[in-house]
Design a protein around this nucleic acid. Structure first.
Length: 815
RNA sequence: GCCCGGGUGGCGAAAUCGGCAGACGCAAAGGACUUAAAAUCCUUUUUCCGGCAACGGGAGUGCGGGUUCAAGUCCCGCCCCGGGCACCA
């Protein structure tokens, strides 16, 4: 019996080499007639090295992919690179290295790591978003959106560092200052920027959630619902006293309008300039600057009286017009009617400035609190509101909005919190926006035939100035495609969320030079069966890609409304209670772990540490346990190889026990795969099985040994592909483990010999007994009372009640 | 402030439908093998009380109540930790 030591290096190198020779091992079979299974893990940003969050994400996806292959599915499991973005530019500045070179080097290294971890990717379909063959389709989509009015240009504020003389991304602003000049306050500048009209799809983004409910975590849907922020109310016009014009406000509570005691404009509201004196305008400007450098959560409410009055369209009452720093220009109409009695913010503001507070809603069955001590914000009964008095809030909202419409001073309205998606970036390492500015023709799209607009590689990246592209004459100077005159090319590049909005469609057809992808193939493979990634992308990426899918549908490329039927959000990998990050210096490099213990151990470790949806605190100590398990498994199988006899019937008591445990394990692991992916318990079950088999080893006969070794190896396959493959070969079998069929379990064999019934007295366990399954209630009662230990507890007391759960327990209640 | 998660031994965790709390693993302690160490194997390991011991008894899943024959699991009220949103009218 030649037991072999577990030489993980030799085993992993051997299979690593063989698999690398056969590039097609994980390739998708596009002609297969098996049911499809499309599994995607969120692609990584090529920062240079995989971190443990990646290892967790990809091990999870891989384990699932291998299982689905074994279940007979035609699996498509691709990967790519989210390869545009700022770090490449920063590296270029720091190390004098071209972003493209830096990115490609990083990709090569991370690809090596993924292959080493034996993640089963179809490398034929690899996608890298920084290559023209990919980003040309970003440009193509942009043109399609422009045609449809979904891409447009407007002025918007950007963060500007006067020291760098450059635009900063939001994440480069730290405490209101530049990340490189920590004492230089960031200024707000207005620039023309490109936007995508995601708001046109706001209702669909909400409604189509019906299609993915149940498949997506509820909390992701909730976060998206809040982000979209649909609210129903009314827009109303307050007339201006003594001058023409009006102020339009949005409110969800028309029913409170008789309690409106002032109108408040946002600081940037266009009317402010008209209404206030030069002196007040200066004060307003001050408030704007003050707010720019403040944490929005800590903002202290401030405001100014404009000196003018507005007229309440319902009551005709004259109310003062204020400006307030807490009124958002970007939401609703940029102006509100303040009802301090029924809104906390208005209450705070009006109390502070001595503005009248007038309650008009009383709680159902309660009385009007006058003067109120705090805002009553719930619905109730309308009071002191002319003809509307006595109505419920709900009824008043409906009737009053309708009344406003019939009188022409307003109408029911729906407002969204979500804003159009600003995609302009004044950066180099991104997709050039395919537009041309012609002095004669204005904005002219680059003709489709001229795509891609390639990034000029010679641009100098200095971290200064508006955009590196502006200093590349070859890029900037073009002839207008319409009139032929000298024109300027747009130098803004696209947000990298554009790249990631549709990459999983490109996987299907990664080398297509004529279209973004083949529609017929997309119809066959979409929606994605399982998308896996971090919950950090719950909002942006996952909303943008849903939006993109709908646009592609409207263009006619696909016919589905949603990109992914199921989404799984894995937990974060934490160290000392917070996320691993370079700045905290607590990053763990997977290479170290693979070098020491091997990839199989590393994979097992991340899956075993916690259930996948939960955050996992980094506790490296348990890695030894995983290594020991694989080591024991390997030795167990190899030393028993020669004892196996195929087909021999079970003969010993040990055989029966081993078979029972084997089939119980098969059942457990299969159920974990088919439900919640708690692979920590699957691996624990495999450990239990190995422990049991080891203790029965000597008394097991050849037939049961053969079955046990084979099925154990197959079950190990999705988790630890290298060692499973090695054992498979040792067992004299051929072909990849993940192409074998997943072993079925036999419910009969898995059954225990008898049911263990717990005997309780007053809810406390006093004894237990083994009875045949299905033993009747009366029989159980009889046996329970006869039990010695139970008897000792019951003796001398009165039995009040007996609860019997067949095959489970008997509880005797005594007094 | 609002909306989600989560809180179980020294540690990671398990208990999937209200029915044996702590599976599996780590760490620790003791032992076997060894000249020795590593590796491996065996034993103990929630806690308190009694006992030389087999064993017996009590407590115990963040805190306080409740429902139930029975609660980690369900209900009510709190505390703490993590995440998201945060003047969205």
């Amino acid at each position: 019996m030649a037991e072999k030591p577990y030489d993980h290096n030799a085993i992993e190198e051997k299979w690593h080499a063989r698999w690398r020779e056969d590039q097609s091992i994980y390739a998708c079979d596009w002609t297969s007639d098996k049911p499809k299974y499309y599994v995607v893990e969120m692609f990584p940003y090529p920062s240079g090295k995989l971190h443990m969050g990646h290892v967790r994400n990809y091990s999870l996806g891989d384990t699932l992919a291998r299982y689905m292959w074994m279940r007979g599915y035609n699996v498509f499991h691709p990967i790519g690179w989210d390869a545009f973005g700022m770090p490449a530019e920063n590296a270029a500045i720091k190390n004098d290295m071209h972003p493209r070179q830096w990115t490609r080097d990083n990709i090569a290294n991370m690809k090596r790591q993924l292959v080493r971890l034996a993640i089963s990717y179809d490398w034929n379909c690899e996608v890298s978003t920084c290559e023209p063959e990919y980003y040309r389709w970003n440009q193509w989509f942009f043109l399609k959106m422009y045609e449809r009015g979904l891409a447009y240009r407007k002025k918007a504020l950007v963060n500007w560092c006067p020291e760098c003389a450059t635009v900063l991304a939001n994440e480069q602003v730290v405490n209101g200052c530049c990340w490189r000049h920590e004492t230089t306050p960031v200024e707000q500048r207005e620039l023309d920027q490109w936007f995508l009209r995601i708001t046109a799809y706001a209702d669909q983004l909400l409604d189509d959630m019906k299609q993915i409910e149940g498949g997506w975590p509820e909390r992701v849907l909730t976060m998206q619902r809040n982000w979209i922020g649909r609210s129903e109310g009314a827009e109303l016009d307050f007339g201006l006293e003594g001058r023409p014009g009006k102020i339009r406000v949005f409110t969800t509570r028309v029913d409170t309008i008789y309690g409106a005691t002032c109108v408040i404009l946002a600081l940037e509201h266009p009317l402010v300039k008209e209404l206030v004196s030069a002196g007040t305008a200066l004060e307003v400007k001050k408030l704007i600057d003050e707010r720019a450098n403040q944490d929005p959560g800590q903002l202290i409410k401030k405001g100014l009286f404009t000196g003018h009055h507005a007229l309440n369209p319902f009551s005709g009452e004259r109310v003062p017009i204020w400006v307030g720093n807490f009124v958002l220009m970007g939401y609703g109409t940029g102006a509100i009617m303040a009802v301090p009695a029924h809104d906390e913010r208005d209450f705070e503001f009006c109390t502070q400035y001595g503005i009248a507070i007038r309650p008009v809603i009383r709680p159902q069955g309660g009385t009007l609190a006058d003067p109120p001590k705090e805002a009553f914000t719930e619905y109730g009964i309308v009071e002191n509101s002319g003809p509307w008095s006595g109505l419920s809030s709900e009824e008043a909202r409906r009737q009053m909005a309708a009344h406003a419409r019939s009188k022409g001073f307003g109408e029911p309205a729906i407002t969204f919190r979500i804003k159009d998606w600003g995609v302009s970036r004044q950066r180099y390492w991104g997709t050039p926006i395919p537009m041309i500015h012609c002095p004669a023709c204005g904005l002219v799209p680059v003709p489709e035939a001229d795509l891609p607009v390639e990034l000029p590689l010679e641009a100098q990246i200095t971290g200064k100035g508006r955009s590196p592209l502006e200093n590349v004459p070859r890029f900037v100077n073009v002839n207008c495609p319409k009139c032929g005159a000298a024109a300027r090319r747009e130098t803004d590049t696209m947000d990298t969320f554009v790249d990631s909005s549709w990459y999983f469609y490109r996987y299907l057809d990664a080398r297509n030079g004529a279209q973004p992808f083949d529609s017929a193939r997309a119809a066959q493979w979409f929606p994605i069966d399982q998308y896996i990634g971090g919950v950090t992308h719950a909002i942006l990426h996952l909303i943008y890609s849903r939006f993109w899918t709908k646009v592609m549908r409207d263009i006619g490329l696909i016919s589905t409304d949603e990109p992914a039927r199921n989404l799984f959000t894995q937990g974060m990998v934490l160290k000392d209670g917070s996320a691993m990050s370079k700045s905290k210096g607590n990053v763990v490099d997977p290479d170290e772990m693979t070098a020491k213990y091997g990839s199989d151990t590393c994979r097992l470790f991340v899956l075993f540490a916690a259930p996948p949806e939960r955050d996992m605190d980094w506790q490296e100590s348990s890695v030894e346990g995983q290594f020991r398990f694989l080591s024991r498994a390997y030795r167990f199988v190899t030393r028993n190889l020669e004892r196996t006899t195929a087909g021999a019937a079970p003969s010993t008591e040990a055989d029966r026990k081993a078979l029972r445990k084997l089939h119980q394990t098969l059942k457990k692991v299969t159920e974990d795969f088919d439900s919640r992916w708690h692979f920590n318990t699957s691996i624990a079950a495999l450990m239990e099985l190995l422990n049991e088999l080891t203790s029965l080893e000597k008394d097991m006969s050849g037939g049961v040994l053969a079955e046990s070794l084979e099925k154990f190896t197959l079950m190990l396959g999705p988790f630890a592909p290298y060692v499973a493959q090695e054992l498979w070969e040792d067992l004299g079998r051929t072909g990849p483990v993940f192409r074998q069929s997943w072993p079925a379990f036999d419910e009969e064999l898995a059954k225990e010999e008898g049911a263990e019934v717990v005997l309780q007295v007053n809810g406390k366990v006093r004894s237990r007994m083994i009875v045949p399954f299905g033993t009747g209630k009366e029989e159980l009662e009889k046996r329970a009372v006869a039990d010695e230990k139970v008897h000792a507890q019951v003796a001398g007391k009165q039995v009040v009640k007996m609860i019997v759960v067949p095959d489970k327990l008997v509880n005797i209640v005594v007094r």
